[in-house]
Design a protein around this nucleic acid. Structure first.
Lengths: 233, 233
DNA sequence: TAGGCATAAAGTGCATGCACTTGCCTCGCC
DNA sequence: GGCGAGGCAAGTGCATGCACTTTATGCCTA
């Protein structure tokens, strides 16, 4: 896969670098602790070191990479403890979004949520993991938007993206699709009833369960040895 | 005033710039919408444009400044709506911290919280606004730490700092000190009882009240005097 | 052989320069 | 007198170079 910048056109070079690197971190292609050498990245993306530097600075500002002065940058290492704290935060943030959604969603938003949710039942029957995963993302985004609070929305999206690398395996567990759908159903039902407390609780439980599934995964996927990842092209 | 970098020594030059600029934004010395000219800032702090640029990039990544490609950076403008959403988020985040604190604070943390809180009663009697403000910050920080969740801690601190410019006037309202103390007292009492629900509610109410006080202030303090920006044609 | 110091190599941090973009102003045109 | 094109000034975006820090290496000494 060629990461040349022609693939990621829009915005300034720095923006492209931010997106390119963030994407590789969030998707797990770059792994926690991995070295981010300015010169190598610059060569890899065919730009000078300056935009790479700025991108690394911005990514470190949002916590995706760690920078040690004069000693280079690495993909942020999340301890088990920090990971747990992020999952717990995520559960609380989703609970807030669900509560607010129950109180504030417009009629159109409620209908759209319910419709999509019902449609997704089919994906469960078919066992269409990929499609369901896509729907799932959309489902949660609806909750975030439905809260009608931009700041909560931003915090939630940011937290979600930082958790992305650790959630990939959740659907590998057998029966997970149907379970997820039933949990969604509780949330949707509560929202349609405008029952904020129930919606919040259902959303929190939903994330907590995902969290447990993922924690297992994270623990079972320890730090990678320092293989020649630089020669990976 | 001398903003020379000798005053802000630690870390790399970029770090110093980030802190210096963020500080001026958070304290309200730089106002929303105000232009952030790279060359001027560089001259002002006696560094080259490069670290200033990187600092602006990082600040824009965390939302404190807005950057329009090729058109410079300005201090982030927060709409009334966005401001309200931040206050609401703050109330929810504080509620979470208070709930978790009620459940998780160690004995030492509880004792320290209660002691400091009781001690602060004296500041109220004396009407020592400055000192009380300092204590108040410390009080809330204790709640954030007491939650024993680093991610929630970080989100809360970040949100709080973004709200800082809009909270300054809250203690100007007469009787505010005593009112604040009584609200704190509700929180502390609930935490000492390990009553998570009550602590959460008390904390949420506390912030909501501050929010209302500040909203008045924000509304009464409209756009910045620096004109010539609206005259875009 | 182990420890420590000097030195080299690698890589980061910042300054500077130049190309390019944007907004403004002026001048010519209608 | 209004309007648009062209040019100018200001300012941003990126590349490059050099100084400095860190780390690796080797040599010397005990």
């Amino acid at each position: 896969m060629s990461g040349k910048r022609s693939l990621v056109r829009s915005g300034t070079t720095v923006d492209q670098m931010v997106r390119a690197i963030a994407d590789r971190i969030v998707t797990g292609y770059l792994r926690p602790g991995e070295r981010l050498d300015e010169a190598s990245l610059a060569a890899r993306f065919d730009v000078s070191r300056t935009p790479v530097r700025e991108a690394l600075g911005q990514l470190s500002a949002i916590g995706l990479v760690e920078r040690r002065p004069n000693r280079g940058a690495i993909v942020a290492v999340v301890t088990q403890e920090h990971l747990a704290s992020m999952f717990e935060s995520m559960a609380e943030l989703e609970a807030i979004c669900a509560r607010f959604s129950a109180e504030r969603m417009t009629g159109a938003e409620r209908r759209a949520l319910e419709m999509e949710h019902q449609a997704s039942a089919r994906l469960v029957q078919l066992g269409a993991e990929e499609d369901y995963e896509y729907f799932n993302t959309e489902f949660h985004s609806r909750l975030y938007r439905g809260a009608h609070n931009t700041h909560i929305h931003d915090l939630t999206v940011a937290t979600r993206s930082r958790l992305a690398p650790f959630r990939r395996a959740q659907f590998m567990l057998p029966g997970r699709l149907a379970k997820s759908w039933r949990e969604h159903d509780l949330i949707v039902t509560a929202i349609m009833r405008a029952d904020a407390a129930a919606a919040g609780k259902a959303a929190r439980d939903h994330v907590s369960i995902v969290s447990e599934a993922s924690a297992v995964f994270a623990a079972a996927d320890p730090m990678e040895p320092k293989v020649s990842r630089s020669a990976r092209r």
